[in-house]
């Protein structure tokens, strides 16, 4: 907690807001993961943590470290970019794995792909 006294309010307020936003959204994502009923519903919960949860904390970190070091420090953006690009890959693979496993067991929920060129009636 060094040097926080010298930070002006116009930096401290956005940093605090971004921190509150990011950590609250991340917690909501994990809370949803715990609470939702089916696997396909739970698949949506972590994206809360990886979209604006990560973005809020990364923006707060960029603002604070840039002010403390006296120059623009953007390396946290790498983490935000990485998380935003990699989480969908994992979630897609998990979704397909769940579909395959459910179909192999003959669960009624995931519908099979329609055969042929016809899109389903809208």
């Amino acid at each position: 907690m060094t040097g926080f006294q010298d930070i002006p309010l116009w930096i401290a307020v956005p940093v605090a807001l971004f921190l509150l936003l990011g950590s609250t959204l991340s917690m909501l994502g994990a809370f949803g993961l715990m609470r939702l009923k089916s696997f396909y519903d739970r698949l949506h919960a972590p994206t809360l943590a990886t979209s604006w949860g990560t973005a809020g904390i990364v923006l707060a970190s960029i603002l604070l470290t840039s002010w403390l070091q006296g120059r623009l420090v953007l390396h946290d953006l790498v983490i935000a970019l990485f998380v935003m690009l990699t989480t969908p890959v994992t979630l897609m693979l998990l979704g397909r794995a769940a579909l395959n496993r459910d179909r192999a067991e003959g669960a009624p929920l995931p519908p099979a792909m329609p055969a042929g060129e016809d899109p389903p009636a809208p």
Partner: peptide, 8 residues
Amino acid sequence: SAALLSFA
């Protein structure tokens, strides 16, 4: 601002 930041 120090109090605000340490709370957040």
